[in-house]
């Protein structure tokens, strides 16, 4: 056994700086080691915890890697059909206007099969938070091309790299919805460094605060790595994401208080 560097003398409640939020269940998440979904779940749960809205929040899980999000987030949740989460959330919010309603969706769910539901929920200005995890690949089904797969990026269904002359262009869904009148807050963030996690958490908090104030649709994209799908180690994948994803999917706020800022 290796040397012990524990400092039991400071492990007291008054010295506690950070612990797992109670809005996450005790279930071990099924995500691959290093997957951004876990971090995104955790900060979402922390925001719900810090706002004290656990009993007033209803979430909608997608089809994709995060299909089982309801096993980890300790709030009432529905599991939608593929791409339909914004439709469910629309009705849940309209029939329960005092509840906080969010969807949590991947790029296949939100930007391919559910494009229609996403655009129309945003355009109607549904008072919901849409959390969009973009890792440029279909993780759950084994690494196929996503609508957000970068040009030249290799996946199981574009094994020689995405050829845009044949397969079309990567879709910037977040920029697209920012131009719809119904969206109030649109931002693109990431969760690969402590600083980026703090920023993303602040963005989620802002989105839920806007919902509290009855503002329009809030859309938070989180650019994330899929190390299994990209066939890299978690640390390599985060580096690859910074070097390749961020130049195309630029981080930062796109629309704030209903006004385009970018």
């Amino acid at each position: 056994m290796s040397e012990n560097f524990d400092r039991p003398e400071i492990r007291k409640p008054e010295n506690l700086i950070y612990s797992r939020t109670k809005v996450l269940t005790d279930n071990i998440m099924h995500y691959c080691p290093g997957c951004g979904h876990g971090t995104a779940h955790r900060i979402l749960a922390e925001v719900i915890d810090e706002m004290g809205i656990q009993n007033d929040t209803i979430g909608v899980a997608p089809v994709g890697c995060s299909v089982l999000a309801y096993n980890y987030l300790d709030v009432d949740m529905a599991e939608a059909a593929h791409g339909r989460a914004p439709a469910l959330a629309t009705a849940i919010k309209r029939l329960n206007p005092n509840k906080f309603v969010f969807t949590y969706q991947g790029d296949g769910d939100l930007a391919a099969i559910g494009t229609g539901e996403t655009i129309h929920a945003c355009n109607r200005g549904e008072k919901i938070v849409i959390i969009f995890i973009n890792n440029g690949i279909y993780g759950m089904t084994g690494g196929q091309m996503a609508p957000t797969t970068l040009e030249g990026m290799k996946t199981a269904t574009c094994p020689y790299g995405r050829d845009i002359s044949i397969m079309g262009n990567p879709l910037k869904m977040t920029e697209l919805v920012s131009h719809l009148k119904g969206t109030y807050y649109v931002t693109r963030q990431s969760v690969q460094t402590p600083a980026s996690v703090r920023k993303t958490k602040a963005a989620l908090r802002k989105a839920f605060e806007y919902q509290k104030d009855g503002k329009g649709a809030c859309f938070v994209e989180i650019v994330s790595s899929c190390n299994s799908g990209w066939k890299m180690t978690p640390v390599q994948a985060n580096k690859w994401m910074e070097e390749n994803m961020f130049p195309f999917y630029e981080l930062g706020d796109i629309k704030v208080d209903g006004e385009l800022v970018k």
């Binding site: 797992r20 971090t39 955790r42």
Partner: peptide
């Protein structure tokens, strides 16, 4: 006790103390 590790741990397995 800066909590940076806990902040980026995808599985929320790190508890942090500082004094």
């Amino acid at each position: 006790g800066c909590a940076s590790c806990a902040m980026i741990c995808p599985d929320g397995v790190i508890t942090v103390y500082r004094a």
